[in-house]
Design a protein around this nucleic acid. Sequence first.
DNA 1: ATTTAAGTAGCACGACCATGCTACAAACGA
DNA 2: TCGTTTGTAGCATGGTCGTGCTACTTAAAT
Lengths: 210, 210
Amino acid sequence: MHVLKRGVPRVVDAEVRRRAVVDALFRVVRREGVEQASLRNVADEAGLAIGSVRHYFDSHDELLVFALRELEERVEVRMRAGVERISAAGTSGERGPLVEALLGELLPLDADRHDESVIWLAFVTAARTRPSLRPSALRLHQGVRMIVGKVLAGAVSYGALPADLDLDVERERLAALLDGLAVTAVLQPDLTTPEVMTAVLRRHLAELAR
Amino acid sequence: MHVLKRGVPRVVDAEVRRRAVVDALFRVVRREGVEQASLRNVADEAGLAIGSVRHYFDSHDELLVFALRELEERVEVRMRAGVERISAAGTSGERGPLVEALLGELLPLDADRHDESVIWLAFVTAARTRPSLRPSALRLHQGVRMIVGKVLAGAVSYGALPADLDLDVERERLAALLDGLAVTAVLQPDLTTPEVMTAVLRRHLAELAR
DNA sequence: ATTTAAGTAGCACGACCATGCTACAAACGA
DNA sequence: TCGTTTGTAGCATGGTCGTGCTACTTAAAT
């Protein structure tokens, strides 16, 4: 009945294990899609027995939910770092490239972020018919729009963008553009190269600045 | 050995039946996602026995491929009609709204096109890991970009858009915007209303025209 | 040293899946 | 009229799935 503190290393191990299982899950999803991310396939990929995976995740659904939260966190960390980098830049002249870099973090410009985008699209589309995934999917959606909104508002306040912009419309427009680029890069990677994506993003930002 | 013409009505019936099965498939996909579109579920939805469905489609995969081709055709028909409407409009003054309407055909602005977009996204993401669906997915991708490219080039030639536009970049930008709007409308329909989508599209076209 | 908990593993069950195959009815061509 | 094709239906097989459950091992706690 005593719910006191236990041996320390155990807890750490548990967290590491959960992370390892999630990484295995991500590899399966990237390679074969969410529908193939069964407990069996994930356990195999992680080099564990199916029962071991279930020790850390009570159900298949819980594993998926946890994995999507993990993805959420990774994106959030990268965004937060980008925002801080912009805040640290004093003069407005330096901010342009930093804004482009921040928004570029949402695009699959390198192999890691490509994989991340693949997993993002897989989970977020799965969330349409899986209620347990919807909260995370919604947070990701809103998070991107919040970042984009802040960036635009900040640029206006610095005089980098005209003050008469309809920020609600511009936020949705830029967010949809980023989503669209990521989606096409995931679905047709041969046709949507990093160069194309950066050119499109740069053009969009330049045009916003008139 | 005689491969001659058979009784006429049979062929018609067969085509009608295949269409009915595909419609049932679309309803299942819309409601529960591609992963639930098993032969059993589709047969139930169509009110047929599983064996009957298999009489028209030799395999599950063939059914999916046929269904995606059907979707391809529907989109193509609507696009062709829109293009003709633009070609029929003589003066350049009338073309603006027609262009907006044509590109709007690619957005889920009403219930029917919303369903169509849901199915589009489901199939096209499934195509990432299903080789048999890739050709259709690629054609849809290229088709949209061809239409968008023609529209932009036409607008330039009519003087409605500045001649110094980088059409390759603008084509990808507008196509990604349309894809992104459709995706977010499918995944977060409550947050991405038809009004938002039309406002974003209108704004983009207006800005292109400088 | 003994108890307690956590980690690992695997079996068994019921459900669902695609597909090969057979059977029967209706309609058509000869 | 007979035989062939076409539509409809259902059975059996082999596979994958999530999950409940049990067993064994390791290590920490008392």
